[in-house]
């Protein structure tokens, strides 16, 4: 059956019925199939909200694509003892030197020694294949530092134990201007002095430590959220004074501090004179700790 010989309308209908993971495999078949898919799906792909690389436990990686209200994707599993040998296939335009191959519908296996190379290859392919116009490319990790990929808009990292500020910083080298960064896990709150994390438009820190003040005072973006973080009261007051008096933090539109420890803040006093600023919300969730 010669797919490329069908009339365009028929090709379009066929492509429409093919799930994303199968469409990807079809795109590996030849340049012509890839161009065909790209040209027929161009309008459909304008509705892609994000492509997410999710690094999960035991070196499993999921790649999720959200298209309108649907989420489709495929997974990459590391080789196991039973399947220790990979016959590399030329998928995602990666040459035979990178050990990855198609395993079953929606699943590939790869050599975990080449994990970062594999992810780089997949991201480069998808970025070229799907385009970049309105798609958010995102990274989410469960307990590891991700590779530094280009053109990433959003990152959510669960930092593993003993991660240094430099190592964390290295994750953002290729994409330093991000829309959203979330840092969680074994994160002690210490960042490099000029960390690109301070420049994220929206930063969410889940930090059970005492270094929130530094982040608060150095943040350059417009939305900041803290969860479980402790602050020095004088620093909070100093920050708010600066913010209120337009002496600093001009980009900041919203601050949220969700503290688990009891603090006797005088919220009314702190928020006095804030109404004339471009502030959407400032919320202190202050609960009584045990």
């Amino acid at each position: 059956m010669k797919l490329l010989k069908f009339p365009s309308l028929v090709q379009q209908k066929i492509i429409k019925f093919i799930e994303f993971d199968n469409l990807l495999v079809l795109s590996f078949c030849s340049k012509r199939t890839r161009y065909l898919i790209q040209s027929l799906q161009r309008y459909q792909w304008m509705n892609i909200k994000f492509v997410r690389y999710s690094f999960e436990w035991e070196d499993k990686i999921w790649v999720w694509v959200r298209l309108g209200n649907k989420i489709e994707g495929f997974s990459l599993s590391p080789t196991t003892l039973e399947q220790s040998v990979i016959t590399p296939m030329e998928v995602f335009e990666m040459g035979p030197e990178i050990s990855i191959c198609f395993h079953s519908e929606g699943n590939y296996i790869y050599d975990k020694e080449q994990k970062h190379l594999v992810v780089h290859g997949i991201h480069d392919y998808l970025y070229q294949f799907l385009g970049s116009s309105s798609i958010d490319y995102e990274i989410k990790t469960e307990n590891e530092l991700p590779p530094s990929l280009k053109n990433i808009n959003r990152t959510s990292i669960k930092v593993p134990e003993n991660t240094t500020a430099e190592k964390l910083e290295a994750c953002f080298t290729a994409s330093s201007n991000q829309e959203y960064i979330q840092v969680d896990g074994d994160f002690n709150g210490i960042l490099s002095t000029n960390s690109v994390i301070y420049g994220a438009k929206h930063l969410r820190v889940i930090l059970k430590g005492d270094h929130g003040d530094e982040i608060l005072l150095r943040f350059k973006g417009n939305r900041l959220q803290f969860h479980s973080t402790n602050f020095n009261d004088s620093n909070i007051s100093q920050f708010l004074k600066k913010w209120k008096s337009t002496q600093g933090f001009q980009n900041l539109k919203s601050l949220m501090i969700n503290s688990s420890d009891y603090k006797n803040y005088d919220a009314a006093e702190l928020l006095k004179d804030m109404s004339d600023k471009l502030i959407i919300q400032i919320i202190f969730f202050i609960s009584i700790g045990e």
Binding site: I18, N22, V25, C29, V91, E105
Partner: peptide, 17 residues
């Protein structure tokens, strides 16, 4: 036709189409 391609690898798809 879309179902014929489901779950196939590259070589198998090339044969189908």
């Amino acid at each position: 036709i879309a179902r014929m391609l489901r779950g196939k690898n590259t070589q198998e798809m090339i044969k189908v189409i």
